[in-house]
């Protein structure tokens, strides 16, 4: 009962601002609405006993990514105060596709028999995450950092070209 109530509240916290993100005509308000969305997702992580991911979610997404998005919007000429239309002439078609997609997804997820196996939660999942990254997923971890490095260099090159 309590868990269901928490889930419904957190879903509202996540979804209502998400709708504002894609419909608001004010760019800054749209970007700002990402914050409650990220915090709602954080709450969902906490209900799933993934505290470490929840902490990282707030630190990276709510505290840094949103700030960068806002920063870019505020520095862009005409980015603030401008009334932007987020819809175009293909709204109906888009809605149709989205609805069809939702029907297919719901049908699939309800029809599939998910294997339910009782696993054991690690007592301290920050350490478990760290161990997994440096042992069985070391290659994935390193490749991801390489991708980040490449995008960092790319950003520097793009910024340099203007000089």
């Amino acid at each position: 009962m309590g868990k269901l109530a928490v889930f419904i509240i957190l879903s509202c916290v996540t979804l209502i601002p998400a709708v504002i993100v894609v419909t608001s005509r004010n760019m800054v308000r749209a970007a700002l609405s990402l914050v409650p969305t990220f915090l709602g997702v954080t709450g969902l992580y906490v209900t799933l006993d993934a505290e470490f991911v929840a902490g990282i979610q707030v630190l990276i997404y709510a505290g840094a990514i949103t700030v960068l998005i806002l920063f870019v919007i505020m520095l862009t000429e005409g980015g603030t105060g401008l009334r932007v239309r987020q819809m175009n002439a293909q709204t109906k078609l888009g809605a149709l596709v989205a609805f069809g997609m939702a029907v297919v997804l719901i049908a699939f997820t309800t029809a599939t028999r998910w294997p339910v196996k009782a696993g054991t939660m690690p007592r301290y999942n920050a350490a478990a995450v760290g161990n997994a990254f440096l042992t069985s997923y070391a290659l994935v971890f390193e490749v991801t950092s390489l991708v980040l490095l490449v995008s960092l260099i790319g950003a520097i090159i793009i910024a340099r070209r203007e000089e």
């Binding site: 700030v67 806002l70 505020m74």
Partner: peptide, 25 residues
């Protein structure tokens, strides 16, 4: 006493900047 204490602290402290940035805008 949550088991990600210091991480939680850093995360919450990082939210301050949103208030300052949007207040300024």
């Amino acid at each position: 006493d949550i088991n990600i204490g210091v991480l939680y602290f850093a995360a919450m402290a990082s939210l301050t900047v949103i208030g300052i940035l949007t207040g300024g805008w």
